[in-house]
C-alpha cells in the first residue's frame, strides 16, 4: 500500500517535472519579453543578464505611448481586424451553412476549392493581389488591407464553421420549415442563434489572424499614420536606432490583448478545429 503511494507519487513527480520543463520552455520568450520591458537601460545592457529586474520601471511603456503614432497603430489594427472579422463572418456563415446543410451541383467542387485555398499560402497570392488592389485604387487604403486579410482568412473560417452547423439537429430545422419554404428568415432566427458560440470563436480567431498579419500590410500601407501594429512594430527594428526597451514594451502590448482574447474563446476554438481541420 505504502509502496503504491510512493510509486504513484513518483509517477506524478515525473509528470510534474515534465510539465514544469515544458511550461518553462513555452513561457520563456514571452516572459523574457515582459521582464525586459520592465528593466531600465542599465539592467537591459548588463552582462551577464539578471533574470528579474532589480528596479522595475514603466518608463518604456510611458515613452512608447507618449508617441501619438503608436496609439494610432493600435486604432488602425483594431479597425482593420474588426472590419475583417465582420466581413469575413458575414460571408463565411452563409457559405458554411450552405456547405453543411444543402446539396446542389458543384457543392463538392466548391468544398475542394475552399479547402485548397485554405492551404494556399499568402506569399503566392501577394504579387497578383498587390497588382489587383493597385488597379482598383485600393492600395494604401484600409479597404485594401481588409480585403487582403479577408482573402487569407475566409477559407479558414468557412472550414472552421462547417462542423458547428452540422451539429444542429436536422429535425429542428425541418420543424421550422414545416410551415413554409426554407428562407433567410429561418436561417437568421433559428439556425444562426444556435451557432453563436462557433461564430464568435471563429470570428475572434479571424480577428487574431488579421491582427497578427504582417506581410501584406507591410507592402500595402504607405503612410505611418495608417500602419497596423505589426508593421509599426517591425519598423522599430529596421530603423537605424534600435531601442530594445521600447521594442519589448510595444511587443508586450501587442501580444497581451491577443492572448487574452484567445484565452476567452479557446474552448470553442478547440472544438471547431478538432472537428473541422483534420479528420483522421
Amino acid at each position: 500500500m505504502r509502496n503504491n503511494i510512493i510509486k504513484h507519487m513518483g509517477k506524478n513527480l515525473w509528470f510534474y517535472l515534465l510539465v514544469l520543463v515544458t511550461v518553462c520552455i513555452v513561457g520563456f520568450p514571452l516572459i523574457w519579453m515582459v521582464l525586459s520591458s520592465l528593466k531600465p537601460s542599465v539592467e537591459l545592457f548588463k552582462m551577464p543578464p539578471k533574470i528579474l529586474p532589480k528596479q522595475p520601471t514603466l518608463i518604456w511603456y510611458q515613452n512608447t505611448f507618449k508617441d501619438s503614432v503608436v496609439v494610432r497603430y493600435f486604432l488602425n489594427s483594431f479597425v482593420v481586424s474588426s472590419s475583417t472579422m465582420i466581413i469575413d463572418m458575414i460571408i463565411a456563415t452563409l457559405g458554411a451553412y450552405s456547405l453543411a446543410r444543402f446539396t446542389y451541383r458543384g457543392r463538392r467542387l466548391i468544398m475542394m476549392a475552399i479547402l485548397s485555398s485554405y492551404c494556399l499560402p499568402p506569399i503566392m497570392l501577394m504579387i497578383p493581389l498587390y497588382r489587383i488592389l493597385a488597379a482598383l485604387g485600393l492600395n494604401s487604403s484600409y479597404m485594401g488591407v481588409i480585403i487582403g486579410h479577408t482573402t487569407f482568412t475566409l477559407p479558414f473560417s468557412v472550414w472552421l464553421l462547417i462542423p458547428f452547423f452540422q451539429k444542429i439537429p436536422k429535425e429542428m430545422e425541418e420543424a421550422a420549415i414545416m410551415d413554409g419554404a426554407p428562407s433567410f428568415k429561418i436561417f437568421s432566427t433559428i439556425i444562426l442563434p444556435l451557432c453563436i458560440p462557433g461564430i464568435l470563436s471563429t470570428g475572434i480567431m479571424v480577428f487574431i489572424l488579421s491582427w497578427n498579419e504582417y506581410l501584406l500590410s507591410s507592402v500595402l500601407i504607405i503612410s505611418d499614420t495608417m500602419k497596423t501594429l505589426t508593421v509599426g512594430l517591425a519598423n522599430y527594428i529596421s530603423s537605424t536606432e534600435i531601442d530594445w526597451g521600447a521594442i519589448m514594451a510595444l511587443g508586450t502590448s501587442t501580444t497581451i490583448p491577443i492572448v487574452l482574447m484567445f484565452s476567452a474563446i479557446q474552448k470553442h476554438f478547440v472544438e471547431g478545429l478538432t472537428a473541422g481541420a483534420v479528420k483522421g
Binding site: V26, M33, N212, T230, A234, Y236, G251, T254, I258, F262
Partner: peptide, 15 residues
C-alpha cells in the same frame, strides 16, 4: 500550451 499559436510573429521575431 496553446498560447504560442496566437503570439504575433513580429513580436516573436523581435524577442
Amino acid at each position: 500550451l496553446l498560447v504560442p499559436y496566437v503570439v504575433p510573429a513580429v513580436a516573436l521575431a523581435l524577442v
